[in-house]
Design a binder for these strands. Sequence first.
DNA 1: ACGGAAAATGCTGCATACAGAATACAAAAG
DNA 2: CTTTTGTATTCTGTATGCAGCATTTTCCGT
Lengths: 233, 233
Amino acid sequence: MQIKTMDESRSLERPESALPGPIRRTALHDTLVNRLRDMIIEGHLSPGTRLNEGQLGQMLGVSRTPLREAIKYLASEGLVELVPSRGAVVKRFGAKDVQDMLLVLGTLEELAAKLACAIASEEGIAEIRGLHDRMVQHYKAGDRLEYYKLNQNIHTAIVALSGNAPLAEIHAMLQTRLKRIRFIGHEGPEKWAAAVAEHEEMIEALEARDQQRLAAVLGRHLTNAWERVRGAI
Amino acid sequence: MQIKTMDESRSLERPESALPGPIRRTALHDTLVNRLRDMIIEGHLSPGTRLNEGQLGQMLGVSRTPLREAIKYLASEGLVELVPSRGAVVKRFGAKDVQDMLLVLGTLEELAAKLACAIASEEGIAEIRGLHDRMVQHYKAGDRLEYYKLNQNIHTAIVALSGNAPLAEIHAMLQTRLKRIRFIGHEGPEKWAAAVAEHEEMIEALEARDQQRLAAVLGRHLTNAWERVRGAI
DNA sequence: ACGGAAAATGCTGCATACAGAATACAAAAG
DNA sequence: CTTTTGTATTCTGTATGCAGCATTTTCCGT
C-alpha cells in the first residue's frame, strides 16, 4: 500500500462571513443532525429503539445516504450507539451514567467559571445578566419550557465567556446528552425556586468576578440538579 | 426485545490492519475511522488539506459512501472540519487551541486522579505500576515511540481507574486531538528525564492514594507538556 | 497584452440500486 | 405441545450514477 502525502491545497481561507449570513445555504447534514437530536431529546425516539433508516428517511423526506451520515455524526457525539449489522439504537443512560456526566459537567463549569471571572468582558457579563432576568420572568410566569431553554443558554454563555473553545465544545456535548434527562425531571415548586436562587447567586458572583464563589455555587447547582433528576431515572 | 450493551471494541493494540486482510468480521466503519485517524495523527494528512473523497476512497480501497460516513464521524470528534460544498478539511490547531485543550485535559485528569485515589482497586494500581516500569525500560533503551505509547496508555489507564465512563470518553477524545501535536514535540534529553521523574512521582502518589499530590503532579505534568510542545507550533 | 466573461473541469451532495445479513414466520419432526 | 429447521421478508452495508456548486481555463473584446 502506498500512502503518499496528498498534494497541499492552497491556503483555503474561509470567508468567515459571520453576521451577514442569511440562512441562505444550510447544508442538509446540519439540519438532519439537529432534527434527529431534537427527536431524541424530546423523547420521540426513546432510548433503546432502533433507528430504522428507511422509515426515518421517508418520515424526514430525505434518502438514506445523508441520514446515515447524520447518524454516524450523532454516534460520535454519544447520543446513539452503532451496532454492527443492526444499525443504530438510541443510547440509554443509567443512573450512574447521569451522575458521572453531571460530575464532569460540574468540573468543566467550575473551570469555565474561573476563566470567565478572569477574562470576561463587561458586555459579556451584562449579556448574561440579561438572559438571567428574562429567565426569571419566565419563571414567574410559570413557563417551564422557556425557562428551561434560557437556563441552558446561561450555562452555555458562561462557558463561552471563558474564551476556551474546546472547553465550550465539550461542555455543549455533555449538556446535549443530559438534555433528555433534564427534559424529564420536573421538579416541584420549592426545588424550582431553589434553582432560581442559585442562578441569582451565580450571576452576582460573576458580576463581582468572585472565582471562588462562582465555582462553589456552580458545584452546588449541579449537585442539586442531580438530586432533582435522580428520581426520574 | 433485549438490548445488550456492547463492550468496547477499542483495543489498545490495533493489529495494524494488513493490506490483504480479509478481516470481514469487524465493521468497515470502525476500520476506516481508525485508519483516517492514524493518517491525520501521523501527519500523512496535514492540517488544512482537503479530503478528496474519490482519491482517498481509491487509496483505501473503498467506495465513497462508507468513507463519507467515517469522515462525518471524525468531524464530530473534531479532527476534521466540514465546509459546505467543499468537503472536509483537516482541522488546524493554533497555539491557543493546544493550550486550551491541555488546560481542559489537565482539569479532567485531576478529577480522575481524585476519583481513582478513592475507588481504585489494588490490582488496578499495580497494573499501572507495571505499565510505568515498562515505560521506564523503554526510556532507558531510548525507544521514543514505545515510550510515547506507554505514556499515553498510563494516562488513559489512570482515567479509566476513576470508573467514570463519560470522563474516560472525553479524555480519550482530547488526547486523540493532541496526539498529532505530541507526535511532533521531540523534547530534549533533560526534559524527557523530567517527564519520567514526574511520572514516577505520579505513580507513587497513586500508590499512596494521595489525592492532593497526584492532582498536583498531574497538573504540573500537563503544564510542562505545554512547555515541551509550544515551540513546535 | 490585459481584463473579464463564459465554457469546462473536478468535486461534493444526494438519490437510487444492489448484495448480504438478520429477523420473523411457518412448517415439520420429536 | 414444544422445538427445530427451512424459507421469506425486511433492513443494513456498500456501490454507482446524476445534478449542482466552486474553481480553473479559455477565449473574446478593448
